[in-house]
Amino acid sequence: MMTAIPMSTGLTGTLNGPRHRTALNVFLFVVLAHWAEHIVQAVQIWVLGWPVPEARGVLGQFFPWLVTSEALHYGYALVMLVALWVLRKGFVGRARLWWNIALGIQIWHHVEHLLLLIQVQSGWFLAGRPVQTSVAQLIFPRVELHLFYNTVVFIPMVVAMILHARPNKEERARMSCSCARA
C-alpha cells in the first residue's frame, strides 16, 4: 500500500495539506470571476452587437483601464501560473495529470501575455502590427483567443478538482489533504 506524499512545511505545505480545499476554492472563485468577465465581453459583442472597444465586461464598464492594461492582464496570467504550480503538490494520480495539463496550457498563455507586455513596454510590435500582438493572435482575434485560453485552462483544472475530490483507493492513500469526499 502506498503512503501519503510528504508535504513540505511552511505556506506551501499548508496550502497543499490542511488548507488545500480552501486554497482551491479561493483560486476557483478568482478563475471563475475572470472567466465570467470574458463571457460577459463575448455576450456584449456577439449577442448585444457592441463594438469591441465598448465591450469591456462588467468591471471594465466602470474601470475601462482594466481592459487595456497589459500589465494587469500579465499579472493575472502570472497569478494563475503561480497558483497552478503551488497548488499542484496537493494533487496525486489522475488529478495530478489533469492539473499538469492545465499548468502546461497556462505556461503558454503566460508566455503570450509576457510577449504582449514586452511589446507595450518596448514599443516594438510583433510582425509589424500597429498594436501589441501575441503569437496566436496572428491567426485568431484577441477576444476569441483569450476566451479560448481561459476555457482550455479551466476545463482540465475542473476535471482535476473533481478527480481530486473523488480519488480511487490508491490515490486516497497518497493524499495529504482532506479534499476527498467521503
Results as ranks from 00 to 15, higher is better:
M1N: 02
M1L: 06
M2K: 07
M2T: 09
T3A: 07
A4C: 04
A4Q: 14
I5C: 05
I5H: 12
I5G: 01
S8Q: 14
S8C: 04
G10H: 09
G10Q: 05
L11Y: 10
L11T: 13
L11V: 15
G13Y: 00
T14E: 06
N16W: 00
G17E: 12
R19I: 00
H20T: 01
R21E: 14
T22N: 08
L24P: 02
F27R: 01
F27A: 14
F27V: 12
L28Q: 09
L28T: 15
F29L: 15
F29C: 11
F29S: 13
V30R: 00
V30Y: 11
V31A: 13
A33C: 14
A33P: 07
A36T: 15
E37T: 09
H38F: 10
I39H: 01
I39L: 11
I39A: 06
V40K: 01
Q41T: 10
A42H: 03
Q44S: 05
Q44K: 05
W46N: 07
W46G: 02
W46L: 11
V47R: 02
L48G: 01
W50L: 13
V52E: 07
V52A: 06
P53Y: 06
P53S: 05
E54R: 11
E54V: 03
A55R: 03
R56A: 06
G57F: 09
G57Q: 07
L59S: 08
G60S: 08
G60W: 12
F62Y: 15
F62A: 14
F63C: 02
W65V: 07
L72H: 10
H73D: 01
Y74H: 08
Y74K: 00
G75F: 09
G75Y: 09
G75I: 04
Y76A: 02
